[in-house]
Design a binder for these strands. Structure first.
Length: 565
RNA sequence: CGGGGCGUGGCGCAGUUUGGAUAGCGCACCUGAAUGGGGUUCAGGGGGUCGGCGGUUCGAAUCCGCCCGCCCCGACCA
């Protein structure tokens, strides 16, 4: 490609809309432009890189025995009603009516469609197992698009789905996908880690997230400083502390008037006590029964951990009217005293004495409350969010919380979709069973953003060979010098004939501009042709990353020099 | 959806508090010349509904109202 005719609009300064490093650099390097919030155009350079990532993903999927398909982006809504996921993903779905007034949606993910497809075609155990995948655009009406290409309303996803007769077969496919993912992210040059995670709205009970470490990541992972414990913050546990409930110096319990003061922050200020001296009482509905969850005022309840501890599938906070009925007070004045429902407290609550809590009476709190004297806890458990510095459940060492970008997620789904969509097969004995499923997703655009977040310097992007939009950039120092120009043309022709991806900067510009552009867009190898070394018959081959140069005597040496390392 | 910030040629900004003359600066762009190993210099030039609509005023980028868009923080914490 000749730079003079290439559409690579680089920017000297980054537009002020950009905050994340990857966002700034992708804009500056002319890879992307924003159409509106969360919606981006990929320009030639950005698209070239995207195609590189897609190629890696495709190769590794094919190698793992998955077959590529292409599913529609337009989905009839009934399919989503059948699995009930219209309620889970409802507002995230972009819906519209067609001319015959039928409601359709742009697919935010494809479990429903693929299961419909397989349900129609697979009859027998002989047709299984089967792994299908696609690389396609997903649409989600994100409440808050962010950080350039990291969270967008339209993005390219590689989504694979596997179908099995039994759980052992699913396990095998799951392992295959797991190792294919490791290869994909390794080839993409990412610094990533794999954590166990909660499956959430996808369903199933096992899932692993592939996380690229970055300060602009929206997810949090927990990593032990010493051992190999690593997990998502959602399900991160801590070593349960062995604490006895304190029983000394009980002060007299009192009711205090706290008019319209209900938040931890407000109560703490009003009564002049630290937040950790408050007991937070949250009422939840766990399937068909109500429970009270208790944590110190400065801690947060982790609903995923609470749900898992209770062993229930559904858990939600109680509605205001339910809280009124159960406690007798408005939201914000709940406390454990006099509650007939089950009370689960975090271990940290054991440490508390003479604390403040809601009086179950609007506008009143109780002070000097104590466990044992005033009420009992039914169960102590680890139900709060982990915090920086908590003890590792495996080795007891300090845990660290880090930001990361979720680049891949694999799930064991079981029969969550096959059951409602009637994807059944007959076994050897002619008995009918629902197909066992797994699903495996990769955020293709996020691989690029994550890579840039981890590979840049003060000049710009540092592409590796796998992702680079071009392997070489030829930089003639002075286009009006015929000898330099002729040499540059010769090298360009040579590399083109060799099938190399090369960008030839034939623009009649000063050397400084060319160097800066080449470094900004991050081409791994620069071939510099200038009078300085051409006089001795030498051309310069300079590495973008190390900034080290080698001097070669001809075009043929370029390839041999690189393959020699 | 709540809080905060912003909107002035392609990009980055000044001007808005205290209304006033052809709306300015840097970069980018076009023409010419010199220059040519790190965003060079000189001369000339093009490009703007000051986010939109309405209002106040002799007069609005500037004051008032409504709307739109963008970014950041939070999302239910009793």
């Amino acid at each position: 490609m000749r730079y003079s005719s290439a559409f690579i609009p680089t920017l000297r300064e980054h537009p002020k809309e950009a905050e994340a490093v990857s966002h700034k650099l992708m804009l500056r390097a002319g890879m992307i432009r924003r159409l509106c919030s969360g919606v981006y155009c990929y320009l030639p350079l950005g698209w070239r890189v995207l195609k590189k990532v897609i190629q890696i993903v495709r190769e590794e999927m094919d190698k793992a025995g998955a077959q590529e398909v292409l599913l529609p982006a337009i989905h009839p809504l009934e399919l989503w009603e059948k699995t009930g996921r219209i309620h889970d993903l409802g507002d995230d779905m972009i819906k519209f009516k067609n001319r015959s007034d039928k409601t359709m949606a742009l697919g935010p993910t494809h479990e429903e469609v693929i299961t419909w497809l397989v349900a129609g075609e697979v009859r027998s155990y002989r047709q299984l197992p089967l792994i299908l995948y696609q690389i396609q655009t997903k649409f989600r009406d994100e409440p808050r698009p962010r950080f350039g290409v990291i969270r967008t309303c339209e993005f390219i996803m590689k989504d694979a789905y596997s179908f099995h007769t039994d759980w052992d077969s699913l396990e095998e496919a799951y392992r295959k996908m797991y190792s294919a993912y490791v290869r994909i992210f390794e080839r993409s040059g990412l610094n990533f880690l794999i954590v166990e995670a909660d499956p959430g709205v996808m369903g199933g009970n096992v899932s692993h997230e592939f996380m690229a470490l970055s300060q602009y990541g929206e997810d949090k992972v927990v990593v032990c400083r010493k051992c190999d414990y690593r997990t998502s913050l959602e399900i991160a546990e801590r070593k349960s502390p062995e604490i006895e409930i304190r029983k000394k110096t009980f002060k007299e319990i009192k009711e205090v008037h706290t008019p319209e003061i209900s938040s931890v922050e407000d109560v703490s200020r009003f009564l002049n006590v630290p937040p950790q001296q408050l007991l937070k009482t949250m009422i939840y509905k766990a399937e068909d029964k109500f429970i009270a969850a208790l944590v110190p005022g400065d801690k947060e309840i982790n609903e995923v951990k609470l749900r898992r501890h209770l062993g229930v599938k559904e858990l939600r906070m109680a509605e205001p009217h339910e809280i009124r009925e159960i406690t007798g007070g408005e939201v914000g004045f709940s406390g454990p005293l006099g509650l007939s429902i089950m009370k689960i407290a975090d271990y940290d609550v054991k440490k508390m004495s003479n604390f403040v809590t809601g009086a179950n009476k609007t506008n009143y709190h109780l002070i000097n409350v104590n466990i044992g004297r005033d009420f009992e806890i039914d169960e102590f458990a680890d139900i709060r969010y982990l915090q920086q510095g908590d003890a590792c459940p495996k080795c007891g060492c300090e845990l660290e919380i880090k930001n990361a970008i979720e680049i891949g997620h694999i799930f064991k789904l079981g029969t969550k979709y096959s059951q409602p969509l009637n994807a059944m097969f007959l076994d050897e004995e002619g008995k009918e069973h629902p197909v066992i499923m797994g699903c495996y997703g990769i955020g293709v655009n996020r691989i690029i953003a994550s890579y840039i977040e981890q590979n840049y310097d003060d000049k710009g992007i540092l592409w590796n060979r796998e992702l680079a939009p071009f392997q070489f950039v030829i930089i003639p120092i002075n286009m009006s010098d015929e000898k330099i120009k002729t040499k540059a043309e010769e090298i360009y022709q040579f590399l083109m004939e060799e099938g190399c991806e090369v960008l030839y900067d034939d623009r009649d510009l000063r050397a400084g501009i060319k160097f800066n552009d080449a470094e900004l867009i991050g081409i791994p190898e620069q071939i510099i042709i200038g009078d300085k070394y051409l006089k001795e018959g030498k051309i310069e081959l300079k590495s973008r990353r190390t900034r080290e140069s080698r001097f070669l005597s001809g075009p043929g040496d370029i390839l041999t020099s690189l393959s020699a390392g």
